[in-house]
């Protein structure tokens, strides 16, 4: 029973981070029709920046905010320097068909991932680093009993919940949020309404960069920092996004929590070695049985 509760708590905190990763993927997918495989490379980079600042003696929160800013800037750069030129040329030559227009941005994002990982390796070497937590990460002991979670776990849950609330309010209550939704749903009508969709897209990339950097900052204390550590998180986030339907923001969040719990259960009750096999089986089942995501109603989308 105790193991079960611990597992559920672990699943929820990890799930919260996966939800952020999935959210970042879905933001760019909705805004630009691209799945950004470099996303966690960007997060790795901004987490290294934060780690360096902390090592140099700056405070956690200063480093935290700078990392988020670096995440936003990297996101915008990826769009402006790579994806925008790519889509501008997308009617010529090799890119002149739908299948290649879907495929080539994937390849470009892998190129970006390679560049970021190599740069990180050059700048920070391959040394694995730990990453501090802003609050204690030993189990809290209310009333003298050991609870199945730490203060840092609670911190993660609170930060992610706040992020989700802010994101929801941004999309529902602000003009820019409306512009982003309109651009994602129908770019042509959005343009005819005077929305500058390429700016809106760059903003999607930037916000996605913030979300994934946040995920990087929250997951790294439990996973050590190296140029490749966050790759696996991306795969989980991708699966979470697909579970949520890939174009639904709330769906991606729920997908993140489902994946968190699934992985925690596999880790504890089966074997950590089988996590990726389970992930593959789960992903294939979702894609075959519910291609529009677990929450798709009647509308079935062609994936």
């Amino acid at each position: 029973m105790n193991t079960l509760i611990t597992t559920l708590f672990l699943g929820t905190t990890r799930g919260a981070v996966f939800a952020l990763v999935a959210l970042g993927l879905v933001l760019v997918w909705r805004g630009a029709g691209i799945v950004n495989f470099a996303q966690m490379g960007q997060a790795m980079f901004s987490t290294y920046v934060a780690s360096t600042l902390i090592i140099k003696g700056y405070g956690y929160w200063f480093a935290f905010l700078i990392a988020l800013a670096v995440g936003a800037i990297l996101g915008a750069i990826v769009d402006l320097a790579v994806m925008r030129p790519l889509t501008r040329r997308s009617h010529a030559g090799v890119l002149a068909s739908d299948s290649m227009r879907a495929t080539v941005p994937v390849i470009a994002s892998l190129g970006i991932l390679g560049v970021l990982q190599s740069l990180a390796g050059m700048i920070w070497a391959a040394e694995e680093r730990g990453f501090p937590t802003p609050v204690s990460d030993v189990a809290v002991k209310p009333f003298g009993k050991t609870a199945p979670f730490t203060k840092f776990d609670l911190f993660i849950i609170v930060v992610v919940a706040l992020t989700l609330v802010v994101t929801t309010l941004f999309f529902k209550k602000t003009g820019m949020g409306l512009a982003m939704r309109a651009t994602a749903l129908n770019p042509e009508v959005a343009r005819l309404s005077g929305i500058r969709i390429s700016r809106v897209r760059t903003l999607s990339w930037a916000i996605s960069g913030v979300a994934s950097s946040l995920a990087g900052l929250l997951i790294t204390p439990s996973a050590n920092l190296s140029p490749n550590t966050l790759d696996l998180i991306l795969i989980v986030g991708f699966t979470a996004a697909v579970v949520g339907g890939l174009d639904s923001l709330p769906g991606s969040v729920v997908g993140g929590f489902i994946l968190g719990l699934l992985i925690a259960v596999i880790n504890v009750y089966v074997s950590p070695d089988d996590v990726f096999l389970a992930l593959l089986v789960f992903l294939l089942l979702v894609l075959i049985l519910k291609p529009g995501g677990l929450f798709a109603s009647k509308k079935v989308r062609n994936v």
Binding site: L178, A179, R181, A190, S193, G194, R196
Partner: peptide, 14 residues
């Protein structure tokens, strides 16, 4: 998927 009010508001966003 947007509400009526949002569709209208969209036209004046700029």
């Amino acid at each position: 998927p947007l509400t009526v009010a949002e569709n209208i508001e969209m036209g004046a966003l700029f």
